[in-house]
Structures are given as C-alpha cells and as structure tokens.
Design a protein around this nucleic acid. Structure first.
Length: 584
RNA sequence: CGGGGCGUAGCGCAGUUUGGUUAGCGCGCACGGUUUGGGUCCGUGAGGUCGGCGGUUCAAAUCCGCCCGCCCCGACCA
C-alpha cells in the first residue's frame, strides 16, 4: 500500500478525550476513529491487524475441531424468554420491536441461538461431540465504555460453543480451549494468565478468564506468590486466620455511645477487629418465576474482613444486590451502625464460614448506643446460609498453599465457561444415547474479544515514539520509506523495491509521499511496523538501503540487490522470536 | 445511575471570571518558494458563528434555564 493512497491519516496530537495509551496511539497512528461512546470504526491499518488476529484465532480453534458458522445479531426475544435471560439481564441487552410488533434483541452473546440450532440439528449421540464458532459482532449497551477499544459497546468476538454428550466430553473441550487460548495470545505476542472466575450472567459451573496484566485493567486478580493459584478477586478464596478456641461466655450488653464502625468499636473496647462481627445490609433482587422479588439480606463477616458482593450475590442466587436504606434496615429489626443478626426478621441471614469458629464476638445490639459481648454462632443465632462471603485481599493466605497472595490488575481478553445443561435444558436441546434415552446436550462457551486483544497488544507494545507491533499481527511487515524523492535514483530504487517486495510476498507499506524525512520517520515509528527499509540518496551513495527493526536502535546498510532477501530473513527471524517466546 | 470535567476550524488550545470592534494562536490543509536522513523555513490563502434550543440584554462564545454529546472516577460489566 502506498501511503499517498492510504485512507486515514496520522495525527500529530491525540484528541483530548483519549487517555489510555492504546487509545491515544491507535487514534494518532490512524488505526481507529470514534463514532459514538464505545463505538469505533476500524480504518484500514486496524482492519488488517484485526484480520490477522482473527486468522490466528481461526487456525487455533479449527485445530481443536472448530467449525466456523455465522449466527444472526438480530434475534427474536422468544428465545431469550425461554432461557429467562430476557428477564434476568438489564438494560445492557438492547430490546426493540420489529415492524410486526414482535420483541427482538440485539445479541450480546449467542448461547440461545446455539441451543436452538442444537435442538434442530443434533439428535443422536453419534453427532457429538461438536465444536462450532463464529467471529462476529456483539452489542452490549455497557453503562460505561472506556479506554478506547478496551471496553466498548459494539465489538467483535470469537465465540465458540462446545457440544458434548457428557461432562467428560465437556472437560476435554474445555481443556482444549484452555490450551488453544494460550497459543492464540502467544502468537499475538500477548502475555496472558488464566484465572478462575465467576460465571456471571452466563451461569454454569467452572470458568476461567484470560487476563493481560496491566494497570489499566478493571479486574483485580489475586495471585499466589508461591504456587500457581490465580483467581479473579470476585471469587478468590483465602485461608482465613483462625480464632483461638475459647469457651462461650455469657451474652452481655454494653454501652457504646457513638461507636458505629468496626474500627471505633475495636479501639473503644480495646480488642482486635477479629473479635468483632461486622454486619452488612443489602437488598437482593431475586428472580422468582418471571417476577423480581426484593429480599433483605443480612450478611455477617468477622470484623477483620470485608464482604465480597459477588460471593454474596451467588450465595443468595440473586440477580443483583444493592445496599439497603436505613429505613429498610430498621424495618428488618436491625439498627444502622449497631446491627447484629440477633432478632432480625424477614431477612436472608448469610454468615461467613469463619464466623462459626470465632467465639465470643462483639456484635451490635440492634439498639443505638449498645453492643453485645460474647455473641456465639449457633447458641445466639443461626443463619440461612453459612459460606465464604469474604473478599480476599493482598497479603491474605493462598487457599491452596498458604503463601501470601498478591493483587494485580488485568484486562480480560478471553474467557471459557462450562455451561453444562443450563441452555440445552431450557430450550430442549437433547440427544438420545445408545439406549435411546434423551439427555440434554452438555455445552461450553468460549469467548475472545478481538478488538480488545488488539488494544491490549497496543497497550503493552509501544514506546515513547509509537506502536511496536508483533510481526504476527502487524498491518504490514515492512515500512518502506523513500527519502529525497526528487533526487536521482531514490524514487526508482524505492519503486522497484516496493514491487520486488510485494512479488516476494512481503506486506509493504510504502511511504511515497512528498514529505520531509522527519515526518516520514515519525510516522513510521508511530504506526510501528516491525521493519523499516529506508531508501535515501545518502544510503544509495554508500551502496545500499537502510534496514532497521522497530524494536532496536541498530541500522544496517544492505545492498539494494540483497534488500528483499534481507527483509525476508528478518521477518523469519522475528517470527522465530515469537515462536521462541511460545515454547518458553 | 451518582460524583467530577469538558464541548470554540480536521487536531491541540486561548478567549468566558468582569457581556461590547471583523473570535484568536499553534499544528494540519491549499498554493508559491526554500530545505532535505528525525515533525525545515518564509510568504499567501481557505477554513469556525463558539454543542443545540430557549431566555435576559441595545448587545451573548461570555449571564440564566433546559437539552444533547464526550471523557474521567464510582456503581455496573463475558
């Protein structure tokens, strides 16, 4: 491609709204343009890079048996009503009516359509396992798009769906994806880690997220400093510091005026926070049939811990959680600042699993200005649920090996879910086994955000001058720059090299513009192609053209006659380096 | 949805507090010349009606009201 013909210009300054490095560089280098909040156009340079990412994804998913299909973005709402997600999902799912007044949705994911396809196509066990996938547009009306391509509303996703007769088959396909995902990201030059994750709106049992570690990430990950334990903080477990066993002491009411926080309580009574019980009041929206019901949730953790809302939400099987108002707290029989589970009514009481083994805690008296000493679980109150609802923090003990956990930020570039039979049961997607007995198809669902992957590559591959594309996803492999275009020889040599490189199968971006050398070099650095080949009068006088890697300082002068061969060997070297990274 | 910020030429900004000539500057763009291995310099020129609507006023980019859009933080989020 001749730069004089390229659609899309580089910008000297990034638009002021762009903050994230990947956002700024992709805008400046002429890769993307915004249309609306969280909605972008991919210009030719981005389109080529995206296509390369997609093709890597295709190769790896087909290597594990994937067959590509394309499912519709516009879907009848009936399907979503059948799986209840029409009711479960909020404004993120865009709904509208077609001209006949039928409810429709814009697809944010495709489990429904897959299950619908399966109930039509899959009849007997011989048709399993299968793996189908697509690379296609998703629309999620995200309340808060941010950071350019990192979090958008309209995006391209590779979503694959595994279909199996049983859990063992699902396990196999899940593991296959797990490995394929690492292959994909590594081929894209992206370092990722897999962390155990919450299933969220997808439902299902096991799930992992593939994360790029970067401070710009919105997810907090808990990583063990010793073993390979890694989990999203939303579900991360940890070993809870145990309380010393003590015989239960009699309940005692004490005056604690103005003491409404755990910290002031602990210092007022001169006890460690671990000797207190912290009450958290929430209201859960729980789906009951097709109706939402609000239930008051009373959560209790030890004073040295905090409630993890994701864990709590999952524990009470709620659709959503919100803090309770003071009025709601009083209606339940509790008192804000002095809450305890003793005597509350009409509430789901959820107690963290560290509480039953923590004797003689100080809890609120549900009366302003008073606390209770020596509250003991089982003797003084009982819970509807006892489970882990505490949030893991940096410095907590790894649930697997006990070493310290550290926290890190990450961007989720992919995920894998064991759906099980949630969708196949809802939509009646069954097959008959050897004995002629019908079973629901066991499903898995696996996503990769294509644009987000590209953004993460940009986010992690740049320097002060611009982008630095890995050879595997670079829009072009070589940036051919012709300097001093009106001087004798330069144009001729550059034009010929352009033709020869293309004939040799090399992808070339040819800067044939009338511009000063500085402008061209700066644009080349900004766009960030892996190799730069410079044709100038000075080099030609010395007998050659200059070859430089974007990621290195050295420039070598190569004879014009050898330039194509040298470029090809450099490309091969860059590809080999990427493969080397992979085998590590 | 809550909090904060911003909206003036393609991009980056000044001007708005304290209403008042033809609304400025840099970059970019067009043309001419100059220069030519890291955003060359000089000149000429085109380009905005100040996010939108309404109001106050002799007079509004500037004051008031409503609305829209974009960004950041939070809630939210595969």
């Amino acid at each position: 491609m001749r730069m004089s013909q390229l659609f899309g210009q580089t910008l000297r300054d990034a638009p002021s709204e762009a903050q994230a490095i990947s956002h700024r560089l992709l805008l400046r280098a002429g890769f993307i343009r915004p249309l609306a909040s969280g909605i972008f156009t991919a210009l030719p340079l981005a389109r080529r890079a995206l296509t390369k990412v997609e093709n890597i994804v295709r190769e790896e998913i087909e290597a594990i048996g994937g067959q590509e299909i394309t499912m519709p973005v516009v879907q009848p709402a009936d399907l979503w009503k059948e799986t209840d997600r029409w009711y479960q999902i909020g404004a993120e799912l865009t709904r509208f009516k077609d001209r006949a007044g039928r409810d429709m949705v814009l697809a944010m994911t495709h489990e429904e359509v897959v299950a619908d396809l399966v109930r039509q196509e899959i009849r007997v066990y011989r048709q399993l396992p299968r793996l189908i996938y697509q690379i296609q547009t998703k629309w999620r009306d995200d309340p808060r798009p941010r950071a350019g391509l990192i979090r958008v509303r309209e995006f391209t996703m590779k979503d694959s769906y595994s279909l199996d007769a049983d859990e063992e088959g699902l396990d196999r396909q899940y593991r296959a994806h797990y490995q394929a995902y690492f292959n994909i990201y590594q081929r894209c030059g992206l370092d990722t880690i897999a962390v155990a994750s919450d299933a969220g709106m997808m439902g299902g049992a096991q799930a992992h997220e593939f994360m790029v570690l970067t401070p710009i990430g919105e997810d907090t990950l808990m990583l063990c400093t010793a073993c390979d334990y890694a989990a999203n903080r939303q579900i991360a477990g940890f070993r809870k510091p145990e309380s010393l066993p003590e015989p239960p002491l009699p309940l005692e009411k004490v005056v604690t005026p103005g003491v409404t926080t755990i910290e002031t309580l602990a210092s007022f009574l001169d006890i460690p926070t671990a000797k207190t019980a912290k009450a958290v009041f929430m209201v859960a929206t729980i789906l009951s049939g097709v109706e939402d019901v609000e239930r008051f949730v009373f959560a209790v953790v030890r004073g040295d811990m905090d409630v993890n809302e994701t864990k709590l939400l999952n524990a009470v099987k709620a659709r959503s959680l919100r803090p309770a108002t003071e009025e709601e707290i009083r209606v339940s029989g509790a008192e804000p600042g002095y809450g305890s589970p003793l005597g509350v009514r009409d509430a789901i009481i959820v107690v963290d699993d560290a509480i039953p083994s923590s004797p003689n805690l100080v809890a609120g008296a549900n009366e302003a200005g008073y606390h209770l000493l020596n509250v003991n679980y089982g003797r003084d109150y009982e819970a509807d649920l006892v489970c882990d609802i505490a949030v893991a923090r940096e410095g907590d003990a790894c649930p697997r090996c006990g070493a310290l956990l550290r926290a890190a930020r990450g961007v989720e570039v992919g995920n894998i879910f064991k759906l099980g039979t949630r969708y196949s049961e809802a939509l009646g997607a069954t097959f008959v086994d050897r004995e002629g007995v019908a079973h629901p198809v066991v499903m898995g669902s696996y996503g990769i955000g294509i644009g987000r992957t590209l953004a993460c590559i940009a986010e992690t591959h740049h320097d002060e001058y611009g982008l630095l594309w890995p050879i595997s996803v670079a829009p072009y492999q070589v940036h051919l720059t012709a300097l001093l275009r009106d001087k004798s020889g330069v144009v001729e040599v550059a034009d010929r090299l352009y033709a020869d490189l293309q004939a040799a199968g090399v992808e070339v971006l040819y800067d044939d513009r009338e511009a000063s050398p500085g402008v061209k070099f700066n644009d080349a650095d900004l766009i960030g192609l892996p190799l730069r080949l410079t044709v100038g009068a000075r080099g030609l006088k010395k007998g050659g053209v200059e070859l430089k890697r974007r990621d290195r300082q050295e420039r070598v002068l190569v004879p014009v006659a050898e330039a194509v061969a040298r470029v090809r060997s450099e490309i091969a070297a860059l590809e080999a380096e990427l493969n080397e990274e992979m085998s590590k």
